[in-house]
Amino acid sequence: MTDHAHLRHGVKDNHYKRLAIAVRELLIEKGVVTEDEIATFMARMDARSPELGARMVARAWVDPEYKKRMLADGSAAAEELGIAVDGTLLVVVENTEDVHNLFVCTLCSCYPRTILGLPPDWYKGREYRSRVINEPRAVLREFGTDIADGIELRVHDSTADMRYLILPQRPAGTEGWSEDRLAKLVTRDSMIGVSLPLRPDQLDQLEHAAE
């Protein structure tokens, strides 16, 4: 740990780190869990990222039949692409010309972790959870996302057993693109609904910047 992190966390934090070590050591000594099992679950967590969700979205953009199945049963559509959902119900909602969707977990931090990985800090924070259901337009503007007044906003509140994923609209100017190329437009935030997917010119800029 760096000195900076020490300053940031201080002694209080160490109490909970000690509690975490105590719980883990005792569970291992009692034979409830093993070190290897914990390592396996950590590796599984590290393997999950928004790229999985982006694959689902890109597939839905090119394959209307897949999209139908995805909107009818998100969990099955994930599994169809080899993405495990660990027993949670995944509900996919589609953005259209008339409706823009986004999701939150007002009570805690439920999130489609198996599809998008671990949630960003703001998703778990008081400000987003408190405000997004009352003033979604204002919150979206803080994300740099302007949704026209004529478009209806729907905010979906997640539960422990039911997680949402937003299917954004396919950006204009992507006719004939491959699924892999399309997936690069699909950002994590566009699948939460707080942003729109990248436009082709934005993707170009990103790729130039990376060169």
Binding site: V104, T106, L107, C108, L118, P120, D121, W122, G125, R126, E127, Y128, R129, S130, R131, I133, N134, V139, E142, F143, D157
Partner: peptide, 19 residues
């Protein structure tokens, strides 16, 4: 206290940290 939907709050803090 955890039931904060609809409560007033400040701007969303966009800072993210790696776990």
């Amino acid at each position: 206290h955890h039931d904060m939907g609809g409560e007033p709050a400040g701007p969303v803090n966009m800072a993210e940290h790696d776990y």
